[in-house]
Simulated assay, not measured.
Amino acid sequence: MEIFDCIAAVARPVHDFGDEFMSDDATAAIGLRAGFAPGRGFYCRGRFGVLGEAPAAVVQAVQGFLGPDLVATGWRAGRPVMPAEEAAACYAQAVRTWGRAHIPADVDVEHFNSLAQRLIDTADADSLPLFAGWRAQPVPADDPVGAAMQRIHVLREHRGACHLAAVRLSGLSAREAMVVNLGVEQAIHYGWREPRPAAAALIPRWQRAERLTDELQVPLYATLTARQRAEFTQLVDALTSTQTS
């Protein structure tokens, strides 16, 4: 399988499976049990806790695609509950718990973990701090299914960080990219205030950003053979099929 074909095949399933985890009521319930109030506190403090005790403005600059008020409110709401490092560990546990509930039982997670870890280890994390933070999170050796979900999350953070860089290189703001990609209503849902409909001239810029994102991921997938890329694509498809194990 060619590199760009593999990248194109796995990008959407990895992104969407991560979205399912993040938006699931079961994930929110873990946060509530950990002491977080309803809202975005667990999400922001947990997902971005790998950055350490950073100011909200720094967290916003690193993650990019969510509206600044949403990030600032969630980050500050979660701060009294637990330190950033502890919140990130709690969120990682939630990632693994969700994976155990949703990854089909017949997936070869051991082979997936081997290939996914090769990609993660290969990645150059320069200018990708959120990915670097998640890559540094411990992955338990005795929970292969949960570990597979955590690696899906880490790979999702890699593409997201690459995409933010590509968006800016293409002359778009993160808000503009969200509107072009998802529309005004979804941009509002993700915390952007009064976003305007996308001008037609912005669409080619967003398309360029998508191409650049793929190009930034080439070094990862170049480490796999054509056969391994085909296997990885099949494993991602099987893993993210959303059947309950």
Rank of each mutant, 00 (worst) to 15 (best):
A238V: 08
G52A: 12
G46C: 03
V62S: 11
F36D: 09
R193Q: 15
A201N: 04
E231C: 14
E53Y: 12
I7T: 07
Q117R: 15
P219W: 04
D24A: 10
A72W: 06
L32H: 15
T225K: 05
F17P: 00
E157I: 05
E85T: 15
L130S: 02
R96N: 01
L224F: 14
H153I: 12
Q150P: 14
A230C: 09
D106T: 06
D126W: 08
A177Q: 06
D214Y: 07
R76N: 06
A84W: 05
E86T: 15
E110F: 08
G52W: 06
S127V: 08
H158I: 03
E86N: 09
V50A: 12
S245R: 13
W134Y: 09
D143L: 02
V184N: 08
M178Y: 04
A198G: 04
E20C: 09
F36L: 08
E20D: 14
T73S: 11
A101G: 15
D19C: 06
T122D: 11
E194I: 03
A34I: 05
M1Q: 11
R45S: 03
R196G: 02
L155F: 03
V145K: 02
G64D: 03
M1G: 10
V236Q: 01
E210V: 13
R159T: 03
G133I: 04
A77E: 07
Q137W: 11
G46T: 03
V62H: 03
A141Q: 14
M22Y: 10
P219K: 03
F42A: 04
F112H: 05
W134F: 13
R196Y: 00
A105E: 12
A34S: 04
A200C: 05
E210W: 02
V179H: 01
M82I: 07
G146I: 01
V184Q: 04
H189L: 14
E194Y: 05
A165P: 00
S170N: 00
P55A: 14
L169V: 11
V218A: 14
